[in-house]
Write a protein that binds this DNA or RNA. Structure first.
Length: 286
DNA sequence: CACCACCCCTGGACGC
DNA sequence: TGCGTCCAGGGGTGGT
């Protein structure tokens, strides 16, 4: 389940393989994963890739039409739960017709023979096409909150003050802060000793500052470790992450808390499986 | 506007 | 071995 650290690793690895290359052809196997125009030129055919951007959990391939450098193109990719975007170099595809990877919905072929494949078995992800970066921001990224790596305590304080919600559902809300998912919210709340059901309203600026520091540190550490591979996440080169080995609560229900040795509890919060330490993360805090 | 329940989807775990 | 059932979960949508 790609969250910010995983998506950032996909972004970096894809940048290596894509930036500066030109898209020679695009193949769409499932039209319904593409939102907006699925015409090959709108899916970057004939474009030179200028950059790979990220906001929260979303990626965007920014291209410039080769025949007219003024014409921009932009393809936004959301990996959802089970999506992956991998660049497979020509030499790794070998000579013979390798059996196709199931659920490969869109394939781009670059001028050096590299294939970029969007694979998404559960189809919780998708692809959105835009004329340029303005459209991307207007129609898709503007509604999102600030990216979790750059958000400042002040904006979080503002959001927290006008919501009645608990911390966990608020932090999972991409319109409030973009990039956190179930894994990193649980890890974050454990790190800063906050109960998932703490009402956002009750957090002082001081505690929000600590929360933001914790969040950046956690996300940076996880990113450096290549992200978390819980089931099948891999980056743009097919490499798994290893931050799952450093998880302190996620996936550890019933095991003992690394701080106080009490058993970790699992409870449904905001409809999501939530693991926390009832000892360290008391409601009301300390 | 704020919030929540519901639904989308597949593969893996588990029980018989 | 094989089949059925349950569950995970991001986020869009529609209802309250």
């Amino acid at each position: 389940m790609p969250e910010l650290p995983e998506v950032e690793n996909v972004r970096r690895s894809l940048s290596d393989a894509l930036v500066g290359r030109t898209v020679e052809s695009v193949r769409v196997r499932r039209r319904d994963v593409v939102h907006g125009s699925a015409r090959p030129p709108d899916l970057l055919r004939g474009c030179r890739i200028r950059s790979v951007r990220r906001h929260g959990k979303q990626l965007a391939l920014m291209g410039a039409a080769a025949h007219d450098r003024q014409v921009d193109r932009c393809v936004c990719v959301h990996l959802g739960m089970s999506g992956s975007l991998q660049a497979v170099p020509a030499h790794r595809r070998g000579g013979g017709p390798a059996r196709p990877v199931p659920h490969t919905h869109v394939t781009w072929t670059l001028d050096d023979g590299t294939q970029v494949r969007f694979v998404d078995p559960r189809r919780f992800g998708g692809i959105w096409t835009f004329a340029d970066s303005n459209e991307l921001v207007q129609h898709r990224w503007r509604a999102l909150g600030e990216d979790a790596l750059v958000i400042r305590p002040g904006s979080l304080l503002q959001s927290f003050q006008r919501t009645q919600r608990a911390l966990k559902p608020a932090l999972l809300d991409q319109n409030l802060v973009a990039g956190l998912g179930n894994i990193y919210v649980d890890e974050l709340l454990f790190n800063c000793r906050l109960h998932p059901l703490t009402p956002c309203r009750t957090l002082t600026l001081n505690r929000i500052q600590a929360l933001v520091r914790c969040m950046r540190q956690l996300l940076h550490r996880a990113t450096r470790c290549g992200g978390s591979t819980v089931r099948d996440y891999v980056d743009g080169h097919g490499r798994p992450g290893h931050f799952q080995n450093a998880h302190q609560v996620y996936g550890r229900a019933g095991q003992s808390c690394v701080r106080c040795r009490k058993p970790l509890r699992r409870q449904i919060v905001a409809g999501r499986g939530t693991v926390f330490c009832p000892g360290c993360q008391a409601l009301g805090g300390r």
